[in-house]
């Protein structure tokens, strides 16, 4: 680090020292905005994990008609085998299904033991290869197979999957819109703080330009001040979101495990943490650049 850079850092900290209250206020406002955003991210991350875990368990069950002919059954099996997206095919006969059903529910209901016929059909359980298009593949294949002769019905919990998918799309969109609003707000806050900081040192900055300081020399400490405001706000927010995460894990992990089927309540992922910090830097650079450029442009066109 050369002396010139050291001078920038020294000037930045001396600016912050002389405008402590203003700096703290800006950091606090950014901290609140980033915390709100962080909480939404926390919610999103955990719902996404939950959704992914459900996604892994999604399987397509094809129920066959009791009166299905052998050629139709063969045709259906051929369709299964010709689809390279299908990982595995299990045939469950109606007797196996009934045995399994009775095993699970006979102790819980007299109705099951009192029933003296098998109401269940033969079925195939299909597992699809994992990947981002897994759900789409299941959906497409189920549309294709459900109208085949000998197929009574297909099932993969489409309604609730669609609803959850729509909710996740909504949440993603909401976070995006909300993030953009908060982002703009934070830029405005930092820009105004830097503006106030510039005006509190107007005489000094005016003199700098008159004595031959370059724009870079005037702008760099202001940019550093803005970046420090953004980064401090984002780091404090990450700490507060971590505390919220720990609180939830400490008090509600038991209930969450039962709801989330053994999944742990997660903190923000690394890419999200880096995005939050990067956003802090971007917000700081943009906010301070706007004010510094406005001031220098106005000053030179006076």
């Amino acid at each position: 680090m050369n002396l010139f850079s050291f001078d920038f850092i020294k000037t930045t900290f001396s600016n912050i020292k002389s405008n402590k209250q203003l700096f703290s206020l800006s950091v606090a406002t950014n901290f609140i905005a980033f915390t709100v955003l962080g909480i939404f991210f926390l919610l999103f991350v955990n719902l996404d994990i939950l959704f992914s875990s459900w996604d892994k368990h999604i399987q397509l069950i094809v129920y066959l008609d009791d009166k299905i002919s052998n050629p139709n059954k063969k045709k259906i099996e051929l369709l299964f085998n010709s689809n390279d997206k299908i990982d595995s095919i299990f045939f469950v006969s109606r007797d196996q299904a009934w045995e399994s059903f009775r095993g699970k529910f006979s102790s819980k209901s007299n109705f099951v033991t009192s029933l003296n016929f098998n109401p269940l059909p033969d079925s195939y359980t299909l597992r699809f290869a994992s990947g981002p298009d897994r759900l789409k593949n299941i959906r497409d294949f189920s549309e294709k197979i459900k109208n085949e002769n000998g197929v009574e019905s297909v099932e993969y919990g489409e309604k609730w999957i669609s609803r959850f998918e729509q909710f996740m799309i909504f949440l993603r969109g909401f976070i995006l819109v909300f993030g953009v609003v908060l982002f703009s707000g934070m830029i405005l806050i930092i820009s105004n703080t830097i503006k106030l900081s510039i005006y509190s040192r107007k005489d000094e900055i005016d003199l700098m330009t008159l004595l031959g300081a370059t724009h870079q020399y005037i702008k760099v400490p202001l940019l550093l001040e803005g970046i420090l405001q953004g980064v401090s706000g984002s780091l404090l927010a990450l700490v507060s979101v971590k505390l919220i995460h720990l609180y939830i894990v400490f008090w509600f992990q038991g209930s969450l495990e039962s709801v989330f089927r053994g999944l742990e309540f997660q903190y923000l992922t690394k890419p999200i943490i880096f995005s939050v910090i990067s956003t802090g830097i971007i917000v700081g650079v943009l906010g301070s650049s706007i004010s510094a450029n406005q001031f220098l442009h106005r000053h030179n066109s006076e």
Binding site: T209, L210, L211, H215, H297, N300
Partner: peptide, 13 residues
């Protein structure tokens, strides 16, 4: 406005 400093450094006011 960006290269005005070149003049200001040649002149003491």
């Amino acid at each position: 406005e960006k290269n005005l400093y070149q003049l200001r450094r040649k002149v003491g006011f």
